[in-house]
Design a binder for these strands. Structure first.
Length: 312
RNA sequence: GCCAAGGUGGCGGAGCGGACAAUCGCACCAGACUGUAAAUCUGGCGGUCGAAAGGCCUACCUAGGUUCGAAUCCUAGCCUUGGCA
């Protein structure tokens, strides 16, 4: 591979980690120091009107800092990685063109993976008719269908995915699409150099900051935000409403739960989510981890970024 | 005080003589993950030995009893809830 002049190298800084570890704050600091622009890698901040619960730290963000990825679609719209890829491609190209450093910040592991490594099958569209037809099939039946269409893919599925209807349906969708169509060449631009920064804390501390943030969002009027969304026509079945901090209010608004009960459930789900995020990120050995309880962690991050980005 | 219903694993709740360390849900632990990813899904979950098959121990309020065998039946006690006083 030819050595590119520094300016031409498409660099990308990734800041990931479980929820509530201060990824955005750190990113805002680095934006100033490294002339960067932030891209949110978050599957929920894309929704308009979902502000408090998804943690769009609006007041914290100075006018000078650019943050991409908020409010991409309306609250009733569907969204998925493929749309995210299209969006990120455009934004990244723009930032690189300006000679600035894109900083991809978020807790949605799949979205980060999509930008950094790409998802080859992402362009294959959803087939709503097929999905409707397969809706009530058992996982055994789905697996059988897949095996007939694409035995290789079927054999490569792990025990968990073999019982996951959503994954099976998508696999069938892909298999069917391939049988009936030609694959167009899709040009996806990937970064040349990526630095992964991971933010984490010992579990006890992590749970504590999550609890504090839950309380903060409550104070900021999350319940009112949910109420307004419902009034504006958003329903509990909408994809956006499956977000943490939103779906948990259903029982409350339907009079089946008290506010403290709903809050407790929400907090528990947040903590479970953090665990799931860690299960994902732990596997990626490219990540350099920093413990946010270390007082000097941000200086260490800065030093590392400097060395990587070649600035002295 | 009387009557009724009931006391099962961290919680809820099945089981109501053998196949029960006890269905299931929740919580918890671990994990998967290439178009819903804050989604969806999988495994584990009394203790102990074992790689596994499996073995052993302690368990269904307490104490006795019936039985080849009891979480399941009987007796007494303790406790909880509802009704009557």
């Amino acid at each position: 591979m030819p050595v590119l002049p520094a300016k031409k190298i498409k660099s990308l800084l990734v800041i990931c980690g479980p929820t509530a570890t201060g990824k955005t704050s750190l990113a805002l600091k680095l934006v100033r120091k490294f002339n960067g622009e932030i891209i949110s890698a978050d599957s929920r901040q894309i929704y308009k009107g979902f502000d408090i619960g998804t943690g769009k730290d609006l007041p914290q963000i100075p006018k000078s800092a650019k943050v991409w990825g908020y409010d991409l679609v309306g609250s009733k719209e569907e969204f998925s990685v493929s749309k995210y890829i299209a969006f990120a491609q455009k934004v990244l190209a723009g930032i690189w063109l300006k000679g600035k450093l894109p900083i991809l910040v978020g807790g949605t592991g799949l979205y980060i993976k999509a930008v950094v490594d790409g998802i080859p099958t992402a362009f294959i569209p959803k087939n709503f008719e097929l999905r409707e037809n397969l809706k009530d099939k058992s996982t055994d039946e789905l697996f059988e269908s897949l095996a007939q269409l694409d035995s290789v893919r079927a054999a490569s599925m792990n025990a968990s995915d073999k019982k996951n209807p959503r994954r099976l349906v998508r696999a069938i969708e892909i298999a069917q699409w391939r049988l009936s169509g030609v694959e167009p060449k899709r040009k996806v631009v990937k970064p040349d150099s990526v630095l992964f920064i991971g933010l984490n804390a010992p579990r006890e501390k992590l749970f504590k900051v999550i609890r504090e943030r839950v309380e903060k969002r409550l104070r900021e009027g999350l319940v009112g935000e949910v109420k307004n969304l419902l009034k504006s026509g958003v329903s509990w079945e909408d994809q956006a409403m499956t977000s943490l901090g939103y779906r948990q209010w259903r029982g409350y608004f339907e009079g089946k739960e008290t506010l403290p009960e709903a809050t407790k459930n929400w907090l528990r789900e947040e903590q479970k989510y953090a665990k799931r995020q860690m299960a994902w990120f732990k596997r990626d050995k490219r990540i350099t981890w920093f413990d946010i309880t270390d007082k000097a962690f941000d200086e260490k991050v800065e030093k590392l970024v400097k060395r990587w980005y070649n600035i002295r």
